[in-house]
Nucleic acid binder design. Structure first.
Lengths: 238, 238
DNA sequence: CTTTATATATGATTACAGTCAGATTAAATC
DNA sequence: GATTTAATCTGACTGTAATCATATATAAAG
């Protein structure tokens, strides 16, 4: 499965990984970064590849060097609920790596990604050795928890229409817009539905309503954000 | 607001607090527990009291010695979404204490509680000094995150009927049953609705359906669990 | 004990969104 | 480029659960 980076120069070296890691974790010295990326078990993964799946007992976690992943749970009759996305600089799967419990989410590639495996022992050693790192890990987890709690409230109280508008705004925040105001991430209607927590058909209908109302423009999977203010109003985002 | 414990003997002393704390955090020595509870800022709070509210900038977090609290977010038109409960041995509010951001949830007393304030600096000092404590905090947060993710999936995919049955099972897990199989927590119908994420009327209707189907018995706010297997089946809990 | 407020209960109505079915288009694969 | 597969779209129908209205019961307050 895993390919050593030196087999192919598309893979980043230890320093490049460490630089990228510093986007999220600032309090690591050179030795500590070397510890994390010593084994340099990088993989180049194409759209659709599975990084780990619900129930897997993890021997480590994964650092995303490039590309985009979705983290999701599999619910009733296999329907995915997308929990979050991970992009360059993010770590995924450290929950089960640390608690030594089976993974409670799965992770798949949305945009071709380079992912680096970090063994549990390296992560644990860092927590032992570096309190600032622990603190950052706690803060990252707390932030995710805060977002999860917000999403519980939204999904429980807002309509599908409101949630879809909100999700478009979140995607704009997370992935940004191109020069032509197009979302820098392209998802299938089904994936959008699996974020919003609704049926694919509902997303299709609502997207064309948004188009008719002049809020967005659609070219296939590319969504152009036309009226941010109106979308935020629809989504109840302030 | 805060009352020193030595003013009134209903309050626990430092050792009692430390013992209770050890239910959740096992890797603390005597000195570290003393650090946490040195100030012993305990409060006795009655049902309905607010511990902290959304938007508050916290100077610390709270340790629950006894009683039950609800942690919730305030959504559309003031409707509460209950995120979780906290009981003896739990800490609440450390997210905003550590990140120095305003609280993103509120917390209210459900059953009269004794709560002890832990200042941010004590918590931070412990994280600096004790990696095992950091690890426990990370694991606790991760566990909460896992539960939040499950709940997102449930609320997005299950019916109100299924979710109510599931919530009853969760309450049974968390608070246990008395000798007569009655849930050891009594909530208003509105509070139940604010966990499930539905209207109060729907909870009322579904509870009496469950009663007619022989799954539960109701005496006011006391809910007697009659048929666990059937409730789990309805809730899709396995 | 009486009054007021809050919680619970039930009915009637509406509407949002899910499901099912079929048609069309786009994307992969050979 | 042809074939297969997957994704998108549209329509019709259904059902769950929200809302509104009102009655009753229970708890809190005077």
């Amino acid at each position: 499965m895993a390919l050593k980076m030196n087999q192919n120069q598309v893979f980043p070296n230890c320093d490049q990984l460490a630089d990228c890691f510093s986007k999220s974790f600032k309090h690591l010295n050179r030795d500590e970064k070397n510890l994390l990326f010593w084994e340099e078990e990088c993989e180049l993964l194409k759209r659709g590849s599975v990084i780990y799946a619900e129930g897997d007992s993890a021997r480590g976690c994964y650092f995303v060097y490039s590309g985009v992943l979705k983290v999701f749970k599999t619910g009733i009759e296999g329907k995915e609920q997308i929990i979050r996305f991970a992009k360059s600089g993010d770590i995924i799967g450290f929950r089960s790596a640390l608690s030594q419990e089976p993974a409670c989410t799965s992770s798949k590639v949305i945009e071709d990604a380079i992912v680096c495996f970090i063994p549990s022992h390296a992560l644990t050693k860092l927590i032992q050795a570096n309190p600032e790192f622990s603190m950052e890990l706690i803060k990252i987890t707390c932030k995710e928890l805060g977002q999860a709690n917000s999403y519980i409230t939204d999904i429980a109280q807002k309509s599908v229409r409101e949630r879809l508008a909100e999700v478009l705004m979140q995607l704009m925040e997370t992935f940004g817009l191109a020069q032509d105001n197009t979302l820098q991430i392209s998802l299938t209607r089904e994936e959008l539905a699996n974020i919003v927590g609704t049926a694919t058909e509902s997303v299709i209908r609502l997207l064309s309503e948004f188009k008719n109302d002049g809020l967005i423009e659609i070219k296939g999977r590319k969504i152009k954000i036309v009226d941010v203010r109106a979308l935020k109003r629809v989504g109840g985002v302030y």
